[in-house]
């Protein structure tokens, strides 16, 4: 741990001068375009995503001889695929973002408390982590939906439960390493409250591994939402979600491959972009992950 700090302190001046690599700029532009698409969905989408037009079912994309107003073609209910993709992106990005942030906040808080207070609190909280790991996650989701309903907020809650234990373990380990340092002892001696020490002194010190984990966790959460929606237990119809569109489209795969390819390509674009940016950030901040 100490060597990590020394290394990053020594490398800081050189790093400031280094310009962003070209691929990172391209990734950031792609990411920005995707996010803007999601944010501006109501203005960008050419049609309402949920309006069905049964006379225009399963039309191919316009450049493959389909109707000229549907660039990506139409789905099994005659809905405009491009509009659904844009709205699906909005749904998936939104859920993944909120889910990631909640999971991070919960996990970080638990990790901070567990690592700093130690003793019985630590034992109990780490027991919770063990339970979470030994509990089949899909069971948690299925039972959660059965008890609480299929509302979107329930889904977000369940999704945010997915990786809190990773944050908790990471933060706890970091806290254990940091709290032995003299300056923590000094602020304790000066009479700072536990909360102040945790949030003013400990948290900033463990920000970079946390940030890296957050970035790398985001695509994982997005894939989780897509997988759940793909299985039909995530976002409920008629709301468009990228995973659900792949799941529904796969039954028509032979007749209308674009139903699967368009949302699948979008999912890949989002996750690859987020993953590459996360990897770059990790290398830049010199953080070790996956422990």
């Amino acid at each position: 741990m100490a060597s990590l700090f020394e290394a990053s302190a020594a490398a800081t001046p050189a790093r400031r001068r280094r310009p962003l690599p070209a691929y990172v700029i391209i990734l950031m532009v792609i990411g920005a375009v995707l996010v803007l698409n999601a944010l501006l969905a109501p203005w960008l989408a050419p049609f309402d995503p949920d309006t069905t037009r049964l006379l225009r079912r399963l039309r191919p994309p316009s450049w493959l001889g389909g109707p000229s107003e549907s660039w990506f073609g139409t789905d099994q209910l005659g809905r405009d695929l491009l509009s659904r993709c844009i709205y699906g992106l909005r749904t998936s990005l939104g859920i993944a973002l909120v889910g990631t942030l909640i999971g991070c906040a919960v996990g970080t808080t638990i990790g901070l408390i567990s690592g700093y207070l130690g003793r019985a609190v630590d034992t109990v909280l780490m027991m919770l982590v063990d339970i979470q790991i030994a509990l089949p996650y899909l069971l948690l989701v299925l039972v959660g939906i059965a008890v609480l309903g299929t509302d979107l907020s329930v889904l977000i809650l369940l999704i945010s439960l997915h990786s809190w234990e990773n944050y908790a373990r990471l933060v706890r380990g970091q806290v254990l390493a940091v709290r032995a340092l003299p300056y923590i002892e000094a602020s304790e001696a000066l009479g700072a409250s536990t909360i102040r020490i945790l949030f003013r002194h400990v948290l900033p010190n463990i920000a970079s591994p946390l940030l890296v984990m957050l970035t790398l966790n985001f695509p994982a959460i997005l894939l989780l939402e897509s997988s759940l929606s793909f299985l039909g237990i995530g976002v409920q119809p008629p709301t468009a979600s990228l995973g659900r569109m792949v799941g529904e489209g796969r039954h028509q795969m032979l007749a209308a491959w674009w139903l699967v390819v368009a949302p699948a390509a979008l999912i890949l674009m989002v996750t690859l972009t987020a993953q590459l940016l996360g990897d770059w950030l990790r290398d830049r901040l010199d953080v070790k992950t996956e422990k």
């Binding site: 894939l223 897509s226 995973g243 799941g247 795969m253 699967v260 699948a264 999912i267 993953q275």
Partner: peptide, 22 residues
Amino acid sequence: AFVGYAVPHFLLAIILILIFSF
């Protein structure tokens, strides 16, 4: 390795089915 990491199970399965089965 990178592509394998970022592609979800269900997508990979569907891509494989599209190519090798259909």
